[in-house]
Design a protein around this nucleic acid. Structure first.
Length: 776
DNA sequence: GGCTTAGATATTTTT
DNA sequence: TATCTAAGCC
């Protein structure tokens, strides 16, 4: 009997293509991996192969992912394959890796090792402060927009000076001025934003040959996951790291690029081939996940995008069930329909709640489902609600910790200088800030000076005249508090430090006063303490920075997830945005809100490039499903308080009829191609009354609100024919969609004040009668 | 200095 | 609809 070598064992069970990707270990490799094609598996096996067969030390391998979750998953799978000796394997997120580089070598680019990572909140705080300083109207130049421009510049490796040179509009000019000041502020605070983690690492590798050499030698093999989502900066960092060894393996799927609005540039995939000569390309196009029907439908949809890297997805899986497209009166009925169908899945197909996901385009859509779940008593998991670390009280206490770790952290200081209120007004803060900026020192320096003067150690400087005696006293007391905190941070574990903050800053007292939510908030602080405990025991100063870095870069905390009342262990339906669903899979997927303005989103409709991204978003959603895929739309949707009629998403037409079943609530199932519904099947199927036929007051048009003696209120979906022959399709609230002959059906038009969106199925161009309703 | 109120504003959000 | 901000008032 032949002995099975470890390599054979490792490669057993892989497809030819997968094996090819695993064993090509020398030189650049590009893996184009379709949904469900086993890319994580391939990456893990590749790592194991490098270690086990090629004798590469684990610590010489760097694998980079985008999310912590992906990193964790990959690490676990590698460990399972490799067993011992894989501890030193570097599996990190892009940001995590860069942060680590900068902690040890950031001095070259002006960073002290205990630098702070600013989140978007801090960034906004800095930006607002700068606008104030420059006397720029934040209404005219919203901080968010300016930060967007700055982020754009950073991700394209442009400095403030370079941005200024490219200035075309007044807005650009303002942005470049703010950018320069913003950089100054961060520099002064020994802080970086998320983009900086990448940018400064790039600058380090780019500007310091010995650093480049160091990190190029440090790693022999580089793997990059989700390569289609890399931005130019990330591409450059990866490129430089691998330039010497040429051993770089990137995995991606251009059809799943859904983050271009965050600077991701899928052309990196093609650029990769020109950057690294002799790149081997392996395409993984066999899906081990979805049924044939789901795959065909998804493929047909994505086929409408131009200039794709074509790949022919196939599967040995069953043909599967047809995709259902259901139509609801409004979002409440949509939710009811979905939950009903989900319940049926259990009895009919044995698919439990844990294997069901409801996916939507915008978070606001989750609401109807939460309400419905609560009403029906169905447990659900809402992905991406308010993050634990985003809670106010948590951020406040963290700001104290940040200040202890990095006394230059002005954003943290400004956040808590008057929380709880300790008699330091906005005006006082502004003055302290002004003095700090003038002297180019952190605000805390100014405050500590005041403390010293107050205790009679020094003579008062000139700016003292600007501050009231009472303010000086309060500021001095705050300075003493922080001084004590900094001292203690050298000696105490982080969790003990949290206790100290809560008890001595007045925060605990404030929460005990708060009868409404004080208790809950205090509990959150206890949670924070618990998460800090994991870092306790190690070298004091380092543990604080480590903890803070973890907070900044790891948004979720183990054991804290799950909806408010939903036990993590409990069987629950998942509510999730399409973006967040990437990389996940479920037996059954419900894609809801397939309407113009929702998917595709209204902000994307007039840009073909953005429409293509919306289509990819749908593609991602569809390919999350293993067995069942159900699409939903509502004829009417409340939007920002108002209600309006909707049009079917253009994407629905891109799914071949032969793969679809239309079904209404009560299970009357009808096959699409036998009974076309003009709202979403090919438009040729409907023959609306020509304009020349002359419209009477009784003429019904799509979007009209009507009332029926038996069925109640509804919305006209379409009408065809004239006079007594007129056939009207109406979606009734709670009754589903009905086709009615006007001559028999007692239909009455309901006249409403507000105009509604209407559409003419015969028009190719979409007409929006009231653009204000859905347009930005 | 903190509270109330009117007015504007509104995708997606891996880190 | 809900959420945030600036302004106005005690």
């Amino acid at each position: 009997m032949p002995l099975i070598s470890p390599a054979e064992n490792l490669l057993a069970g892989l497809s030819d293509r997968q094996r090819e990707a695993v064993i090509h270990t020398d030189g650049p490799l590009l893996i184009v991996a379709g949904p469900g094609s086993g890319k994580t598996r391939v990456m893990a096996h590749r790592v194991a192969y490098l270690i086990g067969e090629k004798g590469v030390p684990a610590w010489k391998i760097l694998a980079v992912t985008f999310t912590n979750k992906a990193a964790r998953e990959l690490r676990e799978r590698c460990e399972r394959l490799v067993g011992h000796g894989s501890d030193e394997l570097q599996v990190r997120t892009f940001h995590g890796f860069c942060s680590r580089v900068l902690r040890s070598d950031g001095e070259h680019v002006g960073l002290k090792p205990e630098f702070t990572i600013y989140d978007t909140d801090d960034q906004a705080r800095v930006a607002r402060r700068i606008l104030d300083e420059f006397d720029i109207d934040p209404k005219q130049f919203p901080p968010r927009a300016l930060l967007g421009i700055i982020s754009d510049a950073k991700n394209n490796m442009r400095s403030p000076a370079q941005l200024e040179r490219r200035t075309e509009t007044y807005r650009d000019e303002v942005a470049s001025r703010v950018y320069a000041a913003y950089e100054g502020a961060l520099q002064r605070a020994n802080a970086v934003d998320f983009d900086d983690l990448l940018l400064k690492t790039y600058m380090l590798l780019e500007g310091f040959p010995e650093m480049l050499e160091k990190y190029q030698t440090r790693f022999d093999h580089l793997l990059v996951d989700e390569f289609q989502d890399t931005n130019p900066l990330q591409f450059q960092v990866a490129r430089m790291l691998a330039l010497k060894s040429q051993n770089i393996c990137v995995v991606g799927d251009p059809d799943q690029s859904i983050y271009s609005w965050r600077h991701a540039d899928p052309t990196n995939l093609t650029d990769f081939q020109s950057t690294f000569k002799d790149t081997k390309i392996v395409t993984l196009d066999q899906s081990y996940r979805s049924t044939q029907i789901i795959l065909e439908a998804a493929d047909s949809v994505i086929g409408n995008n131009d200039g794709r890297m074509e790949k022919n997805l196939w599967t040995e899986n069953d043909r599967g069930t047809r995709i259902s497209v259901a139509e609801a009166y409004n979002e409440d009925e949509e939710a009811r329909l979905v939950l009903e169908a989900a319940a049926n899945l259990k009895s009919q197909d044995g698919i439990g709640r844990n294997e069901v996901a409801i996916m939507y385009r915008v978070n606001a859509q989750s609401r109807a489902f939460e309400v419905a779940c609560n009403r029906e008593g169905i447990p659900y998991r809402l992905v991406g609600g308010v993050k634990f670390y985003d809670r106010k009280e948590v951020k406040d206490v963290l700001s104290f910790l940040r200040l202890a770790a990095n006394p230059a952290d002005d954003a943290a200081l400004e956040r808590i200088i008057n929380v709880p209120t300790r008699g330091i007004s906005a005006k006082t803060v502004a003055e302290l800030r002004r003095v700090a900026i003038t002297n180019n020192v952190p605000i805390l320096d100014v405050i500590l000076d005041i403390s010293r003067v107050q205790s009679g150690d020094e003579d008062p400087p000139a700016y003292y005249a600007e501050l009231a005696t009472r303010a000086l006293k309060s500021v001095s007391a705050f300075g003493d508090l922080i001084t004590r905190l900094i001292e203690q941070s050298m000696a105490l574990d982080t969790n003990e430090l949290i206790d100290l903050i809560v008890e001595h800053s007045g925060y605990g007292a404030m929460l005990r006063e708060d009868k409404e939510r004080g208790e809950e908030r205090m509990e959150n602080l206890q949670e924070l303490k618990a998460s800090a405990e994991q870092f306790a025991g190690s070298e004091e100063r380092g543990q604080l920075t480590d903890f803070l870095e973890n907070v900044a870069l790891v948004s979720e905390v183990d054991g804290l997830q799950g909806g408010d009342d939903t036990d993590v262990e409990e069987e629950a339906i998942t509510l999730i945005t399409l973006h967040q669903a990437k990389g996940l899979e479920y037996d059954a997927v419900f894609l809801v809100g397939l309407e113009e303005g929702i998917l595709p989103h209204s902000r994307s409709v007039d840009d073909p490039t953005q429409i293509e991204e919306e289509r990819r978003l749908l593609y991602v959603g569809m390919t999350r499903a293993r067995k069942r895929l159900n699409l939903f739309r509502a004829f009417q949707r409340r939007f920002r308080g108002q209600s309006g009629s909707t049009m079917a998403s253009r994407f629905l037409q891109e799914i071949p009829d032969s793969l679809v079943t239309t079904r209404d609530i009560r299970g009357h199932s009808r096959v699409a191609d036998r009974m076309p519904d003009p709202m979403w099947t090919k438009r040729a199927a409907s023959t609306p009354a020509p304009e020349s036929a002359g419209r009477t007051g009784d003429q019904f048009e799509a979007g009209d609100k009507v009332r029926h003696g038996t069925f109640g209120d509804g919305v006209v979906v379409s009408s065809s024919g004239t006079g007594g022959d007129t056939q009207v399709t109406v979606a009734f609230a709670g009754q589903g969609v009905k086709r009615l002959m006007l001559s028999f059906a007692p239909l009455e038009k309901v006249v409403e004040e507000e105009s509604v969106r209407q559409f003419d199925p015969d028009e190719d161009e979409i007409e929006i009668q009231d653009p204000d309703l859905f347009a930005p």
